[in-house]
Amino acid sequence: MVSFKINGVRRSFDGDPNMPILWYVRDELGLAGTKFGCGRALCGACTVHLNGSAVRACVTPIAAANEGEITTIEGLDPAGEHPVQRAWRQHNVPQCGYCQSGQIMQAAALLATTPKPSDTQISNAMQGNICRCGTYQRILAAVKTAASEV
């Protein structure tokens, strides 16, 4: 039995504790905002927060969340108005949009610890998040805008 809070709600799971958080939130909870991209922590599409840090949900077992706190894109801000989300819309970042939940969660975790990141710090932090539509230029701009607001 694994117990944790997810998006502020206390839950427990008595299934396979090795199930990755990705498949727990998608298949068991129906929280579909977290995306599957590679299954090997290579693309960042599945990024969520575990105790405030960005983790790749596709390789992080639910057991790792025991007595901890998970935040998914659905829980980042109840109204969808986190500064990063607002900046994403302001810069019209998404193309297909599929990787953007992970990008936003990664950027939000960066700004939580590094409120005024340099371009290099942004690039280093976002390095693990692939966007095949190629929105990196706008992601960089949006993170900088969000940084000016948090």
């Binding site: 929280l31 579909a32 995306k35 969808g80 998404p94 193309q95 949009g97 939940s101």
Partner: peptide, 26 residues
């Protein structure tokens, strides 16, 4: 701007694997 901007920035946009049905098998 993109019509789906809000859904895409809040995780609500629906892609192929996000369709759920009763008794769905994977």
């Amino acid at each position: 701007p993109v019509i789906d901007n809000r859904d895409m920035s809040t995780g609500r946009a629906v892609y192929g694997a996000d369709v759920d049905l009763p008794n769905l098998k994977i």
